[in-house]
Simulated assay, not measured.
Amino acid sequence: MTTSSDPISRSGLIWRALVLPVGLIVLWALFDAFGMLNSNILVSPAKVIASAYEGFADGSIPGATLATLLRALTGWAIGASIGLAFGAMIGLSGIARGLFDPSIASLRQIALFAWIPLLSAWFGNGEVMKVMLISLGAFFPMALGAQAGCQNVPAPFREVGRVLELDRRATLTKIILPAAVPSILAGLELSLNIAWLGTFGAEYLIGTGYINGMGDGLGAYLAAAREYARMDQVLLGVLFLALIGIGLDRLVIGFSRRLIPWRTA
Rank of each mutant, 00 (worst) to 15 (best):
S5D: 01
S11V: 14
G12N: 15
W15H: 06
A17I: 01
L20A: 15
P21I: 05
P21Q: 09
I25N: 05
L27S: 13
W28D: 11
W28Y: 11
A29R: 13
L30I: 15
D32Y: 02
D32R: 03
A33L: 14
M36S: 05
M36K: 09
N38V: 14
N40T: 13
N40F: 15
V43W: 00
V43N: 07
P45F: 07
I49G: 06
I49D: 14
I49F: 12
I49R: 12
A50R: 06
S51V: 09
S51K: 11
Y53T: 12
G55Q: 08
G55H: 08
A57W: 14
D58C: 11
I61V: 15
I61S: 10
I61M: 15
P62R: 13
P62L: 10
P62D: 15
A64F: 07
T65D: 06
A67V: 11
T68W: 05
L70Y: 13
L73Q: 05
T74I: 10
A77Y: 06
I78C: 14
I78L: 15
G79S: 13
M89D: 04
M89R: 02
S93W: 02
G94Q: 08
I95W: 13
G98H: 04
F100W: 08
F100I: 02
D101M: 02
D101I: 01
S103F: 11
I104L: 09
W115L: 03
P117N: 01
L119S: 05
G124I: 05
G124E: 08
G124W: 06
N125Q: 14
K130V: 01
V131F: 00
I134L: 04
L136V: 04
F139G: 00
F140M: 05
P141S: 02
M142E: 03
G145T: 01
A148W: 00
Q151D: 08
V153Y: 01
P156L: 14
F157S: 10
R158G: 10
E159W: 00
E159P: 08
G161T: 12
L164Y: 09
R168H: 07
K174V: 07
K174A: 15
K174Q: 14
I175E: 02
A180M: 10
V181M: 15
V181K: 07
P182A: 04
S183F: 12
I184Y: 04
A186R: 06
L188R: 11
G201T: 12
Y204A: 13
Y204C: 14
I206R: 02
Y210P: 01
M214S: 07
G217N: 05
L218Y: 00
A223D: 13
E227D: 11
E227F: 11
L235T: 07
L235Q: 13
G237F: 02
L239Y: 11
A242G: 14
D249M: 05
L251H: 07
V252L: 09
R257F: 06
P261M: 08
